[in-house]
C-alpha cells in the first residue's frame, strides 16, 4: 500500500484514504461543444501512460476531500512530491528517479514476487 502525503493536511497517510483521479494537467476546454473530434479524443481518451515519471491527480476522499497532484515514478511506485491543485506543473531535473527528492515523499513498495500459476 502506498503512503501518500496530502499537501493540504500536511500529513503522510495510507493509500486507503485516497482516490486516484488519473493523469494531471489534462486541460478541459471551456467550450467543449466546439472542439473537434480529434481534440476531444485527445482530451477525453488519450493518456500518456508513462513508464517513469507520471503527474497524476489524487483526492483525499476520506480526509479533507480535496484534489491535489502528485509526481510519482510508475516503475518503483515512489512518490517524488505532491502539490496543491492549481499549482503549476513542477519542473524536475532530467533524471529525477535517481536524485534525491526535493520535497517530502512517500515510499511503500510491496516486495516483488513472481508466480506462474
Amino acid at each position: 500500500m502506498l503512503l501518500i502525503r496530502c499537501p493540504y493536511c500536511e500529513e503522510e497517510l495510507p493509500e486507503l484514504e485516497f482516490r486516484n483521479a488519473g493523469e494531471a494537467h489534462v486541460v478541459r476546454s471551456s467550450h467543449l461543444a466546439d472542439v473537434s473530434d480529434q481534440d476531444f479524443e485527445e482530451f477525453f481518451f488519450i493518456r500518456t501512460n508513462p513508464k517513469g515519471i507520471i503527474y497524476e491527480r489524487w483526492r483525499h476522499i476520506h480526509g479533507c476531500a480535496r484534489f491535489f497532484n502528485a509526481v510519482r515514478d510508475t516503475v518503483s511506485d515512489k512518490f517524488l512530491m505532491t502539490y496543491k491543485a492549481g499549482e503549476p506543473k513542477p519542473l524536475l531535473v532530467s533524471e529525477p528517479a535517481k536524485t534525491a527528492p526535493a520535497k517530502p515523499k512517500a515510499a511503500a513498495k510491496p516486495r516483488s514476487r513472481k508466480g506462474d500459476a
Partner: peptide, 13 residues
Amino acid sequence: DQYTSYSQTGGLH
C-alpha cells in the same frame, strides 16, 4: 490497483 504502474506488484489490501 487504482493507480497506473509498471512495477508488476500491487497493494496487499
